[in-house]
């Protein structure tokens, strides 16, 4: 189901792009109440061409955020519910023998979509997980020896529930690395919760969302993001942060060069989403926990209980040039 609108229907140019971002944030803000930072992060992640991992307890709106994103951006959307009996073919697709033509015909799986929601990704077996993760990395799948490209743009939003321990297969570090960001949603504040209780059905609201962009617009936006100005002092700042993660006694394994690239890409996208004239230190600080949190391995003796706390500690220890 193609819900997007074509480029001709949209106003073009920088103002149009800005407008799109503004509209998207507004629309998403109506569905996910009081979670503007997380919405900005999720948008930035997609604009930076990264995959998003949403990790939180059930009922906090993980799936809702993913669906709302898909609808708002006008992307083709498929959902895969990961369970322990999910097979790779359920993700990628399967070749079926057609009697009328006497040939095998490939039935594309849900992965052939612009935005894939992999719900409860840690519930599936590593085999199924890796089918997804390979597709994320390569932007293509290989079935029966045929390599098929995925649609462009292609995003994966995965969710997982950190509370569940029984019957789950936590993603290993190397696969966590494929996600540009890991975002936690958290409980809504008092006012938002009140509105949520009083307000209407969220699912119905999602269905009514008018898309503000389409795949072409998204590609144009991604291009603009890569042109976002990155000043010398800011490069110094990112370098200092990365160096600190490598040298700090609290951290066993610091950020890799891919990690620092991810920081730059995400900060650029965030600055674009926030309509900043360049990448500000605030952008770096905003995305730091989401980008670095799942890439750092804290030292065994660390006094910080969560990756977020550890990331905040890093931010508090590095001077801003």
């Amino acid at each position: 189901m193609q819900r997007g609108i074509t480029l001709e229907q949209l106003p073009t140019g920088i103002d149009a792009q800005r407008n799109t971002i503004l509209q998207a944030r507004k629309t998403l803000g109506k569905i996910i109440l009081g979670k503007d930072p997380q919405i900005a992060l999720a948008l930035a992640c997609l604009l930076a061409r990264g995959h998003l991992l949403i990790e939180d307890l059930p009922g906090l709106g993980k799936t809702m955020l993913a669906q709302a994103l898909a609808h708002t951006l006008g992307l083709e959307f498929r959902r895969i519910q990961f369970t322990s009996d999910l097979l790779p073919a359920d993700v990628v697709g399967v070749s079926v023998f057609r009697q009328d033509s006497g040939k095998f015909e490939f039935q594309p799986g849900p992965i052939f979509s612009q935005l894939v929601l992999a719900d409860e990704v840690n519930r599936a077996t590593p085999k199924a997980q890796s089918a997804l993760l390979e597709a994320m990395e390569e932007h293509q799948v290989t079935v029966d020896g045929n390599t098929m490209p995925l649609s462009e743009p292609f995003f994966v939003i995965a969710t997982q529930n950190p509370g569940d321990q029984i019957g789950t297969f936590p993603l290993p570090e190397s696969q966590l690395d494929r996600f540009l960001m890991r975002v936690e949603i958290g409980y809504p504040d008092e006012a938002s919760e009140r509105e949520l209780i009083a307000g209407g059905d969220r699912r119905a609201m999602i269905a009514e969302i008018e898309p503000v962009a389409g795949p072409e617009m998204l590609i144009a936006l991604q291009k603009s993001v890569r042109a976002q100005h990155l000043s010398e002092p800011l490069i110094d700042y990112i370098q200092a942060l990365v160096r600190h993660t490598r040298e700090s006694a609290e951290i066993d394994i610091g950020l890799s060069p891919r990690g620092s690239q991810a920081l730059v890409a995400a900060a650029r996208a965030h600055a674009y989403v926030e309509n900043h004239s360049g990448v500000y230190p605030d952008d770096v600080q905003a995305i730091f926990a989401a980008v670095a949190g799942h890439r750092l391995k804290p030292a065994g003796s660390t006094r910080f209980r969560s990756p977020a706390e550890l990331c905040q500690h890093v931010l508090d220890s590095v001077a801003i040039p």
Binding site: P281, D282, Q285, D316, S317, V318, I320
Partner: peptide, 9 residues
């Protein structure tokens, strides 16, 4: 400003 405090903060 504190260490690591952005100008905006």
């Amino acid at each position: 400003p504190h260490l690591g405090e952005t100008a905006a903060d």
